[in-house]
């Protein structure tokens, strides 16, 4: 079967610094993939290249069989790649509902408006219904994380990339977000989760990819990866 996402030898440099060095990653439809690595290992750069926020210098990105390497970000989301931001980037002057209307109106994978989700449906799914008319500037951290996910889910993506949606949250809040992600996956959405909270990644992922200093150093089942000496070295330092 053809993979949903195929990143072939993706390379990104910033000046003299190589942030991604020939990274190959394949994601199958319906999969739950965990992407981990120490700080500065290139995880966020990688998803920036996948979602089109950055353009990779060489290599290519295929989605659903088509080469999307040259597409701008606003067209990639319409193909079905949605993401959340590590540091939440809400539209601060808009209400929560208006925040969701932007991706619904501009980024949905459904071209006809009657096929699209209703904003109330999205709010309900993520659990933000009570905050619908609140201005985004007044939300708490966990609500902001949920809003990030809600805006990504609104477009009915095929692939959802969650960039550290749980950083800084309490134990029960992490479980809350995990539950949302698992139910989205059960609904048929492929998910890449970037996370530092190992408990969450190990619990969530079917497969884990490890990046270190811009290179892929491991790719496999959670337990195998966790025992890989190269991974342990990368995390514990040398």
């Amino acid at each position: 079967m053809q993979p949903l996402l195929l990143a072939k030898s993706v390379t990104k440099r910033f000046g003299g610094f190589t942030a991604l060095d020939h990274v190959d990653i394949t994601v199958s439809s319906g999969e739950r993939l965990g992407l981990i690595g120490p700080n500065g290992s290139g995880k966020t750069t990688f998803i920036n290249c996948i979602s089109g926020t950055l353009r990779n210098d060489s290599g290519s990105v295929f989605f659903d069989g088509a080469d999307i390497s040259t597409l701008p970000a606003h067209q990639r989301i319409r193909k079905g790649i949605a993401r959340s931001f590590q540091i939440p980037k809400p539209f601060p002057t808009m209400t929560v509902r208006e925040n969701i209307l932007i991706p619904l109106e501009f980024g949905s994978t459904k071209s006809k408006s009657q096929d699209r989700r209703s904003p109330d449906d999205v709010l309900d799914l993520i659990g933000l219904t009570e905050k619908a008319n609140e201005t985004a500037a007044h939300l708490t951290q966990v609500e902001l994380r949920k809003l990030e996910l809600a805006r990504a889910v609104a477009v009915d993506p095929k692939l959802l990339i969650s960039d550290e949606a749980m950083a800084g949250l309490s134990h029960s809040e992490v479980d809350d977000i995990l539950e949302i992600l698992l139910s989205l996956n059960a609904g048929g959405i492929t998910i890449i989760m970037i996370e530092h909270i190992m408990r969450a990644v190990m619990h969530f992922s079917e497969r884990i990819v490890v990046l270190d200093a811009g290179q892929k150093i491991a790719d496999g089942e959670p337990n195998t990866v966790a025992e890989d000496p190269r991974v342990q070295e990368a995390y514990l330092g040398n």
């Binding site: 089109g52 606003h74 989301i77 980037k89 539209f91 109106e105």
Partner: peptide
Amino acid sequence: RGLRAIRDEEVAAESMGVPTL
């Protein structure tokens, strides 16, 4: 509404499907 999204947070707007340029 697209312009307002650009004003509020341009990177997010682009990644949410707003053709910012």
